[in-house]
């Protein structure tokens, strides 16, 4: 699966299936500070990502 990080860099993960929350924590990202978009749709972090999925992580900065 492909992970698009908040800085727009792309990382490919070898695992076949994992809850997105675990992937975020593995990447050192607190799930309460980001929004996850799986294959173009916003999803809760406890959804499972599988091989072939594209996961985009949107970080929101403070201020506003």
């Amino acid at each position: 699966m492909q992970i698009i990080l908040p800085d727009r860099s792309v990382r490919t993960l070898a695992c076949t299936s994992a809850p997105i929350e675990e992937i975020l924590l593995e990447l050192g990202i607190n799930p309460t500070t980001v929004i996850v978009v799986k294959n173009g749709k916003i999803v809760p972090e406890d959804v499972i990502a599988t091989e072939g999925d594209e996961i985009r992580i949107v970080r929101f900065s403070h201020g506003g």
Partner: peptide, 29 residues
């Protein structure tokens, strides 16, 4: 905890968020 079924608690459409107090999943609308 991973969710096998990510559906809106109100209409069954795919959920975009999981909220607490009360625990619920909601679609975009």
């Amino acid at each position: 905890m991973a969710s096998a079924e990510n559906r809106c608690s109100l209409c069954g459409e795919p959920a975009v968020a999981r909220l607490v107090e009360p625990e619920r999943r909601l679609c975009a609308a």
